[in-house]
Structures are given as C-alpha cells and as structure tokens.
Amino acid sequence: MGPVIVLSKVSKTFRVGRERIRAVADVDLSVQKGEILAIVGPSGSGKTTLAHLIGGLSRPDEGSVSAGGQMLRTRDKILSKYRNQKIGFVFQTFGLLPHYSALENVSMPLVVAGMRRRRRRELALKTLAAVGLEKQAKQRAETLSGGQRQRVAIARALVTSPQVIIADEPTGSLDSENGEQIMQLLERLSRIQDITVIFVTHDLTLAKRADRIVHMRDGQLTEADHAR
C-alpha cells in the first residue's frame, strides 16, 4: 500500500512582531494508509503546525504536501474540499460549538458539503451511534461531559469517511479513564475502517500506542521510532 500523505521538504515560518520563527523546517514525512502515527515533542516544537500542514489548515512556505499521490495546491477551494472530504480534525479542547446539539456538531462537515438535511441527519446519527452517543444526539454540546464531547468531536471527524484523522492532544483535557476510552476508540477506528490516525502528544506513554512515533524539536523531525 502506498503512502496516504507525503510531506517533502516542508517549511513554515511565522512572524511574531519583528521576529521570524521557523515553526517547521525541511520536514520529510510519509504516512501509510491505516497507520497510527504519533507526533511527539515539547511545547513549541512545531507539532501542531505540522499537523495543520498535513490537514490543509495551513499552507507551507516551502516544500509540498501530497495526499493520495496528488500534490495539494494552495487554493482555498482545493484545501477546503480536502479538509472537508479527506481529513477529520480532533482538538484538545474538543472544538465543538457549545450552543449546537451533538447531532448538529456532527453534521457540520455535511452542512458545508451541501448535503440535504434528511440525509445528513441519518449519517450523523449513524456516526454518533458508532461512538456510543446516539442517546445524546439532541443534547447541547455544553451539557455533555468531557469524554462525551471528545467522542462527539471524533464522530464529527468521522462523518465524511475521511482518509486521515488528525488529533491534536486528543486526551489532553480528559482524565485517564476517559483518555483511555478515546485512545481505544481511535485505535478501533483505525483497525476497522482502515483510517490513518495522526495524533499529536507530548505524552510518551500515549505515543507508544501508535504504530510509529516521530519526534519534533525546534521544527525539525529528529527521529522516528517504530513503537509496536
């Protein structure tokens, strides 16, 4: 099986005041289909920026990102479609709209895709059921527990059947029990649905559950381990 994501000499620089900070520098990386990849590193090492480059939320200043063998162009239309159809994001603080119900949060990518209301409701309910939250479908996100919110976020990431799920510190806001449940859910999805999961963490214990670990320091990939 070929790589689903390939990064070639990717660099990204931010301007903070007068200072230019190279958050990602000359990164080469390829991720296989169905692989679970952990990006680890200390705070400010460029992990999240790298995840955003992979997910098409940010454009590289240099180098290229390829998905499914095709180089990603930087046009907003192309990148937005890529995020909508190929990528699912999960954030540390869940990234849910608190005043929306679980069902409405899960439906967001389908709303963007222009899907009819009835069809997207069916799909969203099915996906919520897959993460064990069909009974909470009508509950507002702000009334759910942390673990439930993260499962809603995962359902939203899954609802368009993406190739890749990018999870940025997915257990960072959860207690150990809920964190464990979320990791088991991501692993199960990867195995059953053959989805590539890239997760960002600074927790080495958690990272060891991945198929492969890449370390980042000062914007560069320093080493790659095969955890399993």
Partner: peptide, 15 residues
C-alpha cells in the same frame, strides 16, 4: 473560535 471550527470542517472563505 467558531470561524476556526467551520474552516477546519472544510468551510471556504466565501462560506
């Protein structure tokens, strides 16, 4: 925050 979420799920600038 809400704009960021909509963009993450694939909303274009024009949306």
């Amino acid at each position: 925050y809400i704009i960021g979420i909509w963009r993450a799920v694939g909303a274009r600038r024009r949306v």
